[in-house]
Simulated scan of single mutants.
Amino acid sequence: MPTPSAPAVLPDFTLSPALAPLDGRHLLGVLQYEAADLGTRQSAWRARQAADLLTAPAIDVPFKGHAGIRTAQDWLAQAPTSAPGPRLPAPDWREAGLQLRCHSPTPVQAGHFGAIRYRESGALLFGALHIPLPASGACAAAVRAAYADLFRLLTASGKPHLVRIWNYVPRVTAINDQGMEVYRDFNLGRSQAFDASGYDTRHMPAATGIGCEGDHIAVAFLASTEAGLNFENPRQISAYRYPAVHGPRPPSFARATAWPHGRPQWLFISGTASIIGHQTVHIDQVMAQTREALNNVRLLLAARGASLHDVDLLTLYVRHARDVAAVAAHVAAALAPQTRMLVTQADICRNDLLVEMEALARVA
């Protein structure tokens, strides 16, 4: 049983417009979210970024569309109502890019390990890499090699404990030339790398695996000298124990990770959907799936004495643009008014899932 540590000074996670000023001395890493139909968006953004970003570990995540940064109360204000009153504009699916930035409380040092760019500071390391997705869609070997490099970096850095991973996979449910869904092939390579590196189910951290546009699998990760507390949802079979109906190897992640062991702590909720046991429920019912996913998030928060009102940032993935406003308003109504929400239109790792969400909560 780990000994509780003294109160920690936690890293900060900010959600900002892509062109907002950066604090380079303390910037650990960046996840850049962009709308896939912005044409030459990436080069234009990078040309305007502070030079420091060019050496920061960053991944570019093109989605079908996103509706920007809004608080829960703003999403509620723009939802259609029967009563007249002021409204926010409808979501603009072509607005500029957004960044999720991880800041360290102390200055950082940059480095690279093969194709992985990283920054570290004190107990933390944030890294990012891109894995080319072959035209064939067969990606297991490339994923296995990239994750093996990731594990070697963690060992060499003295920060061996994964706290959170974000995986963005193009053509996520397309069938590759070997007759397997791209996401299942991704899981095969990831699982093989976990096995080869000696990681068992106790070490699997919170993670997201969601569809994106483009031709590169993007991976970002946060690691630490201190292991997080990884835990599961009693309503669900652990993802790493899924039966073979979901592919030759199961996904390698925990439902949630609390870090560090002392308080305050961050609670990372993995990508969460309308799944009971290992099966999708409420097929073709987007609002019922939204309610079920929220119930799963609520249960994970409760395991650490938290509630939906403790969520600092919630990211919502909605398969169809037509469902965005209704889903976002329903989720916003369950959160504290000032909770930040990032809403995207994205493909999800099962064709029968219409909604997925992940959360970051600060627990005192």
Rank of each mutant, 00 (worst) to 15 (best):
79 A>C: 05
81 T>N: 06
68 G>P: 07
69 I>F: 12
67 A>I: 06
64 K>I: 08
73 Q>D: 13
61 V>L: 13
74 D>T: 04
79 A>D: 03
85 G>K: 05
61 V>S: 00
64 K>F: 07
78 Q>E: 14
71 T>A: 03
79 A>G: 03
66 H>G: 00
82 S>I: 02
56 A>E: 07
78 Q>N: 11
72 A>Y: 00
85 G>C: 08
73 Q>W: 10
57 P>F: 11
74 D>I: 02
85 G>Q: 11
76 L>Y: 05
65 G>D: 04
78 Q>P: 14
65 G>R: 05
86 P>M: 13
80 P>Q: 12
66 H>C: 04
71 T>C: 09
77 A>G: 11
68 G>C: 01
80 P>A: 09
67 A>R: 08
86 P>R: 12
56 A>T: 15
83 A>G: 03
60 D>I: 05
81 T>C: 09
58 A>P: 00
58 A>R: 08
57 P>K: 11
65 G>C: 05
80 P>G: 06
61 V>Y: 01
59 I>T: 08
80 P>H: 15
86 P>H: 14
86 P>V: 14
59 I>F: 01
69 I>Q: 11
72 A>S: 07
78 Q>M: 14
85 G>E: 12
77 A>S: 06
56 A>K: 01
68 G>F: 03
76 L>F: 08
59 I>M: 05
67 A>E: 07
61 V>C: 10
84 P>W: 03
57 P>R: 15
56 A>F: 01
56 A>H: 11
56 A>N: 09
61 V>Q: 09
60 D>H: 14
68 G>A: 02
74 D>H: 12
60 D>N: 14
56 A>R: 11
71 T>Q: 03
81 T>L: 13
70 R>P: 03
84 P>H: 04
73 Q>Y: 09
